[in-house]
Amino acid sequence: MSEILLENVGKVYEGGGYRVVALAGVNFRVGDGEMVAITGPSGSGKTTLLNIIGLIDSPTSGTYRYGGRAISEYTPAELAKLRNKAFGFVLQDFALIERYNASQNIKVPLMYSDVPAKEWGGRIDNVLSMVGMSGMQKRLPSQLSGGQRQRVAIARALVNDARCILADEPTGSLDTKTGNEIMEIFSGIRDSGKSVVVVTHDAEVAAMCDRTVRICDGVLGKDVKYVDFCT
């Protein structure tokens, strides 16, 4: 069971003289093979939520269970393993390594996996063709367009056969046509039995998902957030 389950998860940023409640008691669940959109206004905590799900940030309250086990019980090494195997992250700015070419970037998760090196080439070619980037192995990120970089980032998220793909504004900086193509790719991924969580501002993008979760600031500026389900 790879189910993602957040129970009353909160995130508070505190520092010298400030206290920001980014998430206040979020209950959220993603099942296998489902494509969920997270929408909401800017600053409402969407990225924070996605980062917590993807294990690169941790909640300050509540419980996040992955596969039935609270993540606070996982060791740092196990968490690293999960980041490697269970999740494929597509960040808003793609998070590609500039001095690596497309193929080398996609190889990164494989380097930390158990996949034997002789399978890497095949896997890389495979995911590149899935995102429509065959033949661009040797291109550096600086030699790629925004949409192409996005595809490389998606290919990297897919290469290790992650069960859950997390994407932060994957269409944010793309034109409608390219955005739609990217969403097609995500639909394909969902159809192959994986779950996909997409953070988006775009109602059209959200509409392509199985369900949409809205995360909003509390009325009257109170530090309260809620999640409502408006499928």
Binding site: G54, I56, P76, A77, A80, K81, R83, N84, K85, F89, L91, A95, L96, I97, V108, P109, M111, Y112, S113, R156, N160
Partner: peptide
């Protein structure tokens, strides 16, 4: 730093 965090995002342990 950025590169290292990308590696960690992709499964590298801090120790590595």
């Amino acid at each position: 730093l950025r590169e290292f965090s990308v590696l960690m995002l992709c499964g590298a342990r801090e120790g590595e």
